[in-house]
C-alpha cells in the first residue's frame, strides 16, 4: 500500500512501486484531468505539482512521491494563483481541443506561484516543455501575462474597421470579450 496526498486528501493505493503516478491518478484513482500524451516527458500533458513544483507524472514512479503533496488540475483551482490562471485561460479563450491544457495550466501555475511577474524568457523556460498540438501558444503567453499584470489582456482579434474617435474606446469596444450574460 502506498499512501498519497492528492489535492489535500489522503489516498491509499495498492500498485507496483515503479508505476508512474500518471496511471495511478488516471486508472486507479480516477482523476482523469491529468492527461497522457507521450509517456516520455516530452509533451507535458501529464504535468502535476509535487509540493508546488511542476513534474511530469508519466515518468514519475509512484514510490518516489513519498509524502509530497500532489496537486492535479482537479485541485489546482483551490489555490489563488491556480484559480486566476484558470480564469485567464477562459478570458483569453486559450483552449482549443483542450487536451494539453491541464498540463499547460499546471505549468503556468507553478511558474506564476514562484515568479509572479515572469518575463517572456521566463515564460519560455517554464512553458516550453508543454506541447500544444492545436497551437495555442500565442494565447498561453497572453493569459500568463494577464495573470501577471492583473490587466485584462486584449485578445488580438482585430476586425478591420475604421478607427473611431477615441482609440482607447474603440479598442475597448472591439477587444473586450462580450460576456454572454450581457448579450440578452
Amino acid at each position: 500500500m502506498i499512501v498519497l496526498n492528492i489535492n489535500g486528501e489522503s489516498r491509499s493505493v495498492d500498485v507496483p512501486d515503479d508505476m508512474p503516478l500518471l496511471w495511478v491518478l488516471r486508472d486507479v484513482i480516477g482523476l482523469t484531468g491529468t492527461k497522457f500524451g507521450c509517456g516520455i516527458a516530452q509533451c507535458g500533458a501529464c504535468t502535476v505539482h509535487l509540493d508546488g513544483a511542476a513534474v511530469r507524472s508519466c515518468v514519475l514512479p509512484v514510490s518516489a512521491v513519498g509524502s509530497k503533496a500532489v496537486t492535479t488540475i482537479e485541485g489546482v483551482g483551490a489555490s489563488a494563483v491556480g484559480k486566476k490562471v484558470q480564469q485567464a485561460w477562459l478570458d483569453i479563450e486559450v483552449v482549443q481541443c483542450g487536451y494539453c491544457q491541464s498540463g499547460q495550466i499546471m505549468s503556468a501555475t507553478a511558474l506564476l506561484a514562484a515568479t509572479p511577474e515572469p518575463s517572456d524568457a521566463e515564460i519560455d523556460v517554464a512553458m516550453s516543455g508543454n506541447i500544444c498540438r492545436c497551437g495555442t501558444y500565442v494565447r498561453i503567453r497572453e493569459a500568463i501575462k494577464q495573470v501577471a499584470t492583473g490587466q485584462k489582456v486584449a485578445p488580438q482579434t482585430i476586425p478591420n474597421v475604421a478607427p473611431t474617435a477615441s482609440p482607447a474606446a474603440a479598442a475597448a469596444a472591439l477587444l473586450s470579450f462580450v460576456r454572454v450574460e450581457d448579450m440578452a
Partner: peptide
C-alpha cells in the same frame, strides 16, 4: 529541462 532540471539535480527519476 522537464527531467534534468536546471540545477542538475534531476526530476522524477
Amino acid at each position: 529541462a522537464a527531467c534534468h532540471a536546471w540545477n542538475g539535480q534531476g526530476r522524477q527519476v
